[in-house]
Design a protein around this nucleic acid. Sequence first.
DNA 1: CTGAAAGCGCTTACAG
DNA 2: CTGAAAGCGCTTACAG
Lengths: 338, 338
Amino acid sequence: MTTIRDVAEKAGVSISTVSRVFSGNIVVKEKTRQKVLSIAQELEYSPNNIGRYLKSGQTRTIGVLIPDIRNPIFPVIVRGIEDMARRLGYSIFLCNTDEMVSQQEHYVQLMRSMRVAGLIIATGQKRSDHTDISKFGGVPVVSIIRQIDGIDSVTVDNAGGIEQAMDHLLQSGRKRIVLCKGPSSIQPYKERFDAYVAKMKALSLYDPNLVVDVNPFNVGYGKDPFIDTDIAYEQLKTFFANGLEFDAVLAANDVVAMKCLRIMEELGKRVPADVAVIGFDNVDISTMTVPPLSTIGQPLYEVGKCAVKRLVNRIDNPSDEVALEKRFETTLILRKTT
Amino acid sequence: MTTIRDVAEKAGVSISTVSRVFSGNIVVKEKTRQKVLSIAQELEYSPNNIGRYLKSGQTRTIGVLIPDIRNPIFPVIVRGIEDMARRLGYSIFLCNTDEMVSQQEHYVQLMRSMRVAGLIIATGQKRSDHTDISKFGGVPVVSIIRQIDGIDSVTVDNAGGIEQAMDHLLQSGRKRIVLCKGPSSIQPYKERFDAYVAKMKALSLYDPNLVVDVNPFNVGYGKDPFIDTDIAYEQLKTFFANGLEFDAVLAANDVVAMKCLRIMEELGKRVPADVAVIGFDNVDISTMTVPPLSTIGQPLYEVGKCAVKRLVNRIDNPSDEVALEKRFETTLILRKTT
DNA sequence: CTGAAAGCGCTTACAG
DNA sequence: CTGAAAGCGCTTACAG
């Protein structure tokens, strides 16, 4: 690879000058500049960011740690991250942790070694070993999806979302509302569950039989491709086939909602005439189900963008003391299943 | 940040020794090793990969350029890439190009500057400016999804997939097979289209009225979030509402197939009794539609893994002359829509 | 506006 | 088994 030295030599200037031409904003005589640029092009010179970093201490690089890019909320978030990162001059490393502490630690180490300027971490896990700040070794971190004490975070108001969904369901006269809940070990699902229980109890509508536990992604996490046998579907099928009386379903997320739609069809229940179904996330597919799915929209793309802004802000002002906690509101999206 | 020098000083050894401890496989007296390791831990030392690279010339980093991670085939591919990369000791940079030459060139430049060991590029575009090898400046590249002359590639047999789908449809007596085709500017869609036409003509079944052009992702590419108005749906709705006679639908991909399912429902056509519907890709959602979608499976996860293997192979043997072209077979996946 | 020099954090022959 | 030294490709005060 051609280096700054090759270019300097051929252009008959010092390497300092070449460096100045490529670092921008520093004054170089226009004629010299042109000369250097043309030689550089001729030699296919590409400035070595690695060498550059060693002096400047700036890698302009962000590590993104998410559970699994195949969970459909993450492509949207990651796209938001990448778009904003690009705009601010950063590149991103993508790492899938499968919600496993060991893998997360591996990547935190690796990213530290890569001297990333900062880390964006998505973990729903409540276990503290995922969120032990001391392990980040001084690298700026922003947490998305779930709030972590002492760290900047960008989250979504899960409880508020459930409120919106339930108010809507209740207004249309539904009272026997099933909750298909995700694992309580994952913070956002826990929040949704708690909000549901609180609301149902407040209205004296709560009945534990209305709650079914679901493994939203056949997890599947950590396995090669997702498994084809659909655990969540089986769980739901068993639950609904049991003769339970209900008139609405509030699903842990859109994917689960979609499975419920299929089961309602199989059970001969009309949606929304016999039972209303509402999802959570407003992921792409929710527009395409039959009928199109009502759901609670999370601003996923915005979460990604915001996380990068916060992170860069933290990188530039590492000593700001208070952790910034941004919480987005959800929006009720009415389509044809409610 | 603590450096190798800090550790050496405190441990009372030279930096060479510390370096040897961390680079593995080199003989260091066990006692010295322990000493260094414990000091390193105490000081929270993390070896600086950037400094390391500058001598070794090894970044162990791969740039992944894809059109848009929100296109549901890419999360699976990227997961395959990441899993294999991790196994081989590489990290990945993720870049979304939106199929735009300017953005692709930007990223190729950036990745060169980052001194990635290699590049994995997914572009369906047929325009040669996307695939002009000379622009890669000597960085090893493997192309996925589409074959590019002179470059290692990992692809899938699109024509073969269409054959499988059509044979299946024909065997069940379907003759008026609609093709919902993606834009011909994208290589895989072009291949599928050509295979369809060839087969239909061979059987004297070809009728241009059976072909409808569809914009598979409302593209949407390059826009902030995907647009909510569903262009593909509108296009298909108009097409099918026209009184055309048909008994099967072969869709450009699973997402399009899903939209067709919805339209069949709206048109009062029973699937598969009145019309058979078959998709392409075997993306996650295809198991969840009502009824579950028959489709042509692409080994997406395998494509990702294989691409990394090929790339690393090329990195290790840059002078191997022939470009390796791996082409995976598709598999017919029968569910309930055919 | 430009150049010579020091140094960022490592690795790696070369001696011993 | 260990250390001293050179050098990877840059940036950046310091002089001029």
